[in-house]
Write a protein that binds this DNA or RNA. Structure first.
Lengths: 211, 211
DNA sequence: CGACATCTCCGCCTGTAGACGGAGATGAAA
DNA sequence: TTTCATCTCCGTCTACAGGCGGAGATGTCG
């Protein structure tokens, strides 16, 4: 008997998943949760072997819930089951300790198989997701800003906000001359000619917090 | 008897929705589709009163499917049922002729009610979605760059590319002095202090072709 | 220890940016 | 026609940007 918990903020998705599992005699649904916080208390109480977990939820993400659960209950097999579109979260999910990663496009058979394999200690990764993971381990394509030092990166982010050297010196508590030195180094490393181009670079490469 | 079709590329979501409806005696599921194209042929064949339609699908979006269906079968009540996150598509969906717009966070009761109301000719719009719609009809919030002249907009796009005044004058075949005049006017109208901030503005507001 | 990277700051110099005020040419609108 | 917006250009002036070369204070690594 495999005890399973289902976590998703959409009730209809939970019902859909459960309809997949209800026909399987060796699987027992021990509970549902509609939030990350709810998932933690549910799983720590019911101690299911497997958790099917969505990532995007309103109260506490699946990532945080996964970390919390594994801290108290490390044997738990957490299967991330999410949409294709939030692929930035694939890697954080793996780091958080997720055991498998499947998509909501999965069929009933695929979900059941993922659960059975999880109990057997086998990880299941969707091919599309696996491809994205592989890229992480392939030799990274080098971005010009990789060679910026930490301080230079801070200055670049300020430039990306449109700040002047004076404002940056006040923001970072350093002298204007120092800022100028950093800026010169940044322009050189990014292979641009002035701060405006550096600002454009920073914004296009997502180096600025504020969108 | 209300005849209903369910369209979503995720089987588990379809099963979840169907589990909501299967208990309702006056609702009959006449078919499922997992793509926009499939939805069109299904609906035109089975002629359900109501269609529950997801927007994001692999083969043909829900928007296109909605248009296609209504072209041949305009009495059909199409209820969009999608995630909260693809809100840019709310307006296109309404324009395409969708009858109601609910979210995947909806409970079984809400889905059933939306179907019943659709048959009765009443539209259901989720409050969160309705708020976004209202903004469309409220006096448009004026973006600072709306008051830029055509020429000033061209200059701003050049600034957004990181070009100097010299380069802009060559690009637009005008004198540097003219460029400076435009730049001064742009800075004033955008309420920024220098070209770097203008470049940041242009990039953040999607005024530049190249991403 | 020495080599190296990083962060900090200095002076000097040139060029660009940008503000300010003025002005002619054009075309559309009242 | 007169008015207005737009695009074009001019001169002047100040401040900031950025290059160049130098240098002291750290901390790390072999």
């Amino acid at each position: 008997m495999i005890r399973v918990a289902v976590v998703d903020d959409h009730e209809m998705v939970r019902k859909g998943i459960i309809s997949y599992l209800i026909t399987e005699p060796e699987i027992e649904i021990v509970g549902e949760a509609n939030s990350g916080n709810g998932a933690v208390s549910l799983v720590l109480e019911k101690r299911p072997e497997v958790v099917l977990m969505d990532l995007l939820m309103e109260n506490g993400t699946g990532i945080d819930a996964t970390k919390e659960i594994l801290k108290e209950y490390p044997e738990c097999k957490i299967i991330i089951i999410t949409s294709f579109y939030d692929d930035e979260q694939v890697f954080p999910a793996i780091e958080a300790g997720a055991f498998s990663y499947i998509l909501k496009t999965a069929t009933a058979e695929e979900v059941v198989r993922a659960i059975q394999k999880a109990v057997a200690g086998e990880t299941v990764i969707e091919p599309k997701v696996a491809n994205r993971m592989m890229k992480r381990f392939r030799p990274q394509e080098r971005k010009p800003h990789d060679e910026l030092t930490e301080r230079e990166m801070e200055v670049l982010m300020c430039i990306g906000e449109g700040m002047t050297n004076q404002q940056i010196s006040e923001e970072l508590f350093i002298g204007i001359k120092t800022v100028k030195t950093h800026v010169s180094n940044i322009l050189s490393k990014l292979d641009v000619t002035d701060r405006t181009q550096a600002a454009v670079y920073a914004n296009r490469n997502g180096l600025v917090q504020n969108q």
